[in-house]
Amino acid sequence: MILTAAYDAVLAQIGNPSPEAPPNSDKILQMVRYLDWFVLLSGVSGITYAGGRFAWEKWSGGQLESPKMIAGAMIGGVVATSAGTIMNAVVGA
């Protein structure tokens, strides 16, 4: 009974803090936005390159390896763009 009262008193003082950005975090957030842009650019470039290679492989009659490149770029893009959602699901739980 005493432990329960002490436990409740401690929890009443802690409360439920809301997330807050640390001071001067605008530069870090800007870097994250730049990295996000670079990942998007890399994905578009990879899919464009793989599409061109796919056309070349079909035209020259070579072995088709470019569909794997396209699938890899698309899966990487899905994981990269959903990283924030995944982290919110894992950390927010």
Rank of each mutant, 00 (worst) to 15 (best):
R53D: 08
R33M: 11
M31G: 10
M31F: 12
M74G: 07
Q63H: 10
A50V: 02
K27T: 13
G62L: 04
Q63A: 10
L40T: 12
D26F: 02
P67W: 09
P17C: 09
W37T: 13
M69I: 07
F38K: 05
I75Q: 06
F54E: 11
W37D: 05
V79L: 15
G72M: 07
G77K: 02
G62N: 10
L29M: 14
I70F: 04
Y34I: 09
G61M: 04
A73E: 05
S66N: 01
E65G: 02
R33L: 12
Q30S: 14
W59F: 05
A80L: 14
V78M: 11
L35Y: 07
V78T: 09
F54L: 15
I75S: 06
L35K: 00
S60I: 08
G52S: 02
D36Y: 05
L64T: 06
V39E: 12
P22K: 05
T81V: 13
P19Q: 08
P67A: 11
D26H: 11
R33N: 14
A21G: 01
L64Q: 13
G62A: 10
K68M: 10
P22M: 07
I70P: 03
V79H: 02
P23Q: 13
P67Y: 10
W59S: 07
F38A: 15
W37G: 12
G62F: 09
Y34L: 07
G76R: 06
A80M: 14
G76W: 09
P67F: 08
F38N: 05
I28C: 00
R53L: 15
W56K: 14
M74P: 01
M74I: 15
I75N: 03
Y34W: 07
T81I: 13
M31K: 14
P67I: 08
D26P: 01
D36I: 00
L29T: 10
A55K: 11
Y34M: 06
I28M: 13
M31P: 00
S82A: 10
V44C: 02
P67N: 12
P22Y: 05
P17Y: 08
P23D: 14
D26L: 08
S66Q: 06
L29I: 09
A21K: 08
F38V: 14
T81E: 10
L29C: 01
Q30H: 11
A83D: 03
I28A: 15
A50W: 00
E20S: 11
G72Q: 10
V32E: 10
D26C: 01
R33H: 10
K27W: 05
P67K: 12
L40D: 08
L40P: 02
P17H: 04
G46T: 02
Y49P: 00
L40R: 06
T48Y: 02
A71C: 05
A55W: 09
R53F: 05
Y34R: 01
G51R: 01
F54R: 14
W56Y: 12
A50N: 06
Q30A: 15
T81Y: 12
S25V: 07
G61K: 03
G77W: 04
Q63C: 01
S60W: 00
G51D: 03
F54I: 06
A83I: 12
V44T: 03
Q30V: 00
I75M: 13
S82Y: 03
A50G: 03
P22E: 04
M69Q: 05
L64R: 14
I47N: 00
V39R: 08
Y49D: 06
T81A: 09
